[in-house]
Design a binder for these strands. Structure first.
Lengths: 252, 252
DNA sequence: GATCATAGTCGTCTGCCTGACGATAAACAC
DNA sequence: GTGTTTATCGTCAGGCAGACGACTATGATC
């Protein structure tokens, strides 16, 4: 590794965010509308430049706060301070991914409970939650019948990678609780799995599995009927982060 | 995401490589000795600057070839052309990780079969395979009694992350075959798992498991006695990349 | 050449986990 | 009350993993 200063080309470094949540039983991602070229008017993932004195995770947490108002979860802090889970996803550095200059983007994945309304610098019309299938379908028509343009830059690929990471990670970790409010029921947690995986799960087996995994759920003592039906026990996320044995995703 | 050219600080972008192999029943990583400050004379992970017209994975493959002579496995190509498995690991961008300038390093993980001898620009004394525990122990004494200096920069953390990735990934993927030559026996594959995980596995249960997983192993018809004992069947890696159900790593 | 050490391969048994699904409980709507 | 919805407990069969016995086929040693 030689550091002759003339030997390396300068790069711009950004962080892009795949912010996922579950709304109305479907997996949604945050998208912001680009206000300037290139890809002006198209939807893109939120993100921005890493500052000179910032760590990558700091930059991601700052962007997350700016775009969504969410505080990032300090990984060293105890669970569930209502902050979002934030982790590095992957880095994208194709020379042509930005037409203007060489940009390397360190994508991060954020998982958040369902939130009121997005804000992008206070302008709600330029930020929204959209179902990931809608954002990923190339040039189809959205739910409202409007034609859908693909995401700007290589953001469709980044989003797809983030969704895949989330889908696989809730199998063997307790990360699905990051989509839930601080207190939640087994049924709400099951609906998270169903939305993220896009499958239906047996409520009885799911209940047995999650309540039988030590450290996954801690009962708070309270109950709720906010989902209708018989009152359900409320739980908080337990200390366990790795599930062993894992949740099994039904095939196909 | 605004692109005011005056708004972003310039970064240097490098790739660092965690190259792992299994030698003499222990997990080893490639280390190179630094020829210049900072950390002159200390061991470090191989790596170098990303060039202006290079993708990140291209840069990693180029560095891998330069430092080890290994060709990287094109992920789109069929398995086992004797190239190494190469994947992106994570990106490290702490503002202080390099004392001279702002460097963001995109670390990659490479898995290779046991190789003859390393070469770093043809100079063997400046590159070696070392057991990962030896490289990761901070300021202890190596097997030869010499004091061990920690790896340069944040490379100990990068190596630890790479080792952890490899340990977990061989659980649910067929990646352990990347440590094996094109043809190998069940026992050789088992010794890979034992070296990477640092545990002993039951040869009978292991044999049942790997030969019973569809697509994991394909018999070549040949046999070998290179390990002594009764001749063992030779296998190639099958097409399967994901193991379902996974290999189970014994707890502690 | 018999014996031993080493590896490989095939079976058996038991316990645990999962998927399928029946049954009951506790709320709300009418 | 009746029906609907959701939650929760139980049962049962099949599959897989861990523990481990038994046998096989080579090379090494005496």
């Amino acid at each position: 590794m030689s550091y002759d200063p003339s030997a390396f080309p300068p790069f711009a470094v950004t962080v892009d965010l795949v912010v996922l949540t579950v709304r109305r039983h479907s997996l949604c991602a945050m998208a912001v509308r680009r206000g300037e070229p290139p890809f002006q008017g198209r939807w893109a993932l939120p993100g921005g430049f890493v500052r000179a004195d910032e760590d990558l995770s700091q930059a991601a947490a700052r962007e997350l706060a700016e775009e969504t108002g969410l505080r990032a979860h300090d990984p060293s802090a105890p669970a569930q301070d209502n902050g979002a889970h934030l982790e590095q996803l992957a880095t994208y550095g194709d020379p042509d991914r930005d037409p203007r200059m060489r940009v390397v983007s360190v994508a991060h994945l954020a998982l958040a409970p369902d939130l009121p309304a997005p804000r992008a610098g206070g302008d709600a019309s330029n930020a929204r939650w959209a179902p990931v299938e809608e954002l990923l379908q190339q040039g189809g028509y959205g739910r409202d019948g409007e034609p859908v343009a693909p995401l700007a830059f290589d953001h469709a690929r980044i989003l797809a990678d983030g969704v895949e990471r989330a889908r696989s990670k809730i199998e063997y970790s307790s990360l699905a609780t990051a989509f839930c409010p601080p207190e939640f029921t087994v049924g709400e947690l099951r609906r998270v799995y169903e939305a993220v995986w896009g499958v239906a799960l047996d409520p009885r087996n799911f209940h047995r599995k999650v309540t039988g995994t030590p450290g996954f759920l801690v009962p708070t003592g309270g109950t709720t009927t906010r989902q209708g039906g018989r009152p359900a026990q409320l739980f908080r996320a337990g200390g366990a982060t790795l599930l062993n044995p894992p949740m099994l995703r039904p095939e196909v």
